[in-house]
Design a binder for these strands. Sequence first.
DNA 1: AAAGCTTTGACCAACTTTGACCTACGGAAA
DNA 2: TTTCCGTAGGTCAAAGTTGGTCAAAGCTTT
Lengths: 172, 172
Amino acid sequence: MRLSDTIETFIKEMISTAEENGVELRRNELAEYFHCAPSQINYVLSTRFTPEHGYMIESRRGGGGCIRIIHVQTSPTDHLDYLIRERVGTCLTEPEARLLLRQLNASGAVSEADAAMIAAAISPQTLSVPIPEAMKDILRAKLMRNMLLTVIRRTQAEHRQSTALIIQERKR
Amino acid sequence: MRLSDTIETFIKEMISTAEENGVELRRNELAEYFHCAPSQINYVLSTRFTPEHGYMIESRRGGGGCIRIIHVQTSPTDHLDYLIRERVGTCLTEPEARLLLRQLNASGAVSEADAAMIAAAISPQTLSVPIPEAMKDILRAKLMRNMLLTVIRRTQAEHRQSTALIIQERKR
DNA sequence: AAAGCTTTGACCAACTTTGACCTACGGAAA
DNA sequence: TTTCCGTAGGTCAAAGTTGGTCAAAGCTTT
């Protein structure tokens, strides 16, 4: 088994045993544990924990710095999940994006407010920088995907919270 | 947890439990309490209690000297206006953008949910396309500006609505 | 052999912590 | 009153601690 696969499995194990659906890790610590270069951790993250896989990554440098990996679980039967996987893809023209956004909003998957934020991000006005049109389509897809993941993540967090409340209620 | 974060939390705790919305503290005393260099207190103040965070700081040297920290609350919309004009500009590096976002959220100008959406849009993960770094900074500024404007528009719409409601109430 | 993954290491960027040196205030001594 | 000294806080640059990037080198699969 390749080292990268081992590290991937290890991190996924960490995530699945964590309470929340995210973990915090130290790059150097992990690298030392697996006797590899620290940058290998980045390689694993950038090839196996991408937004396309449903992961979002945040990190901080400096003393006490760390890497946070958040797994946004989507069920294959989920409508939003389907849209993200099948419709967003790696490329999204502006008309495509607008249509998708309207549909998402109409179906109630994305609120008016969130739709407005995404619309602002993918608008031609925002993307009016001198780069090839094809690059903008890629960028639009990335923006759309990451922002939709954020929406799903929030929905899940709210769901967890309300579930916790119900459990708390039952205990009483 | 970082020492700076611990000190930050400690001071915020002090402020929130204080009668007024400000506190007075002794730099050397605090430094001794946390077993750190006195200048670390300055570091915490200058990175976490700036005017942009909504804090004002006064100090007096010499015998009986002290540092006074006052938490000032401005209207979130005004704050947003100011930040869009003064801080966003046409260029925004990733650390700059993240800092700004943290401040906006801390001051209550931007909700947690909106901040998360913006964070997703300006993240390195989203902007990982092969264009010059300078172009990304421009893009980041555009994203930030247009998304913040969206937040303002929504806030104002809500305000109009609630005002209309009040007027309606009065008419009855 | 070619193409496509992995692995590594040199160099970079961001954030924190510390310490040497500086400035201001206030009271005591001259 | 003026001078001096002790007691605060201020500044800044160096050192320390993390993570990020990128391209070259090494494997694997075709």
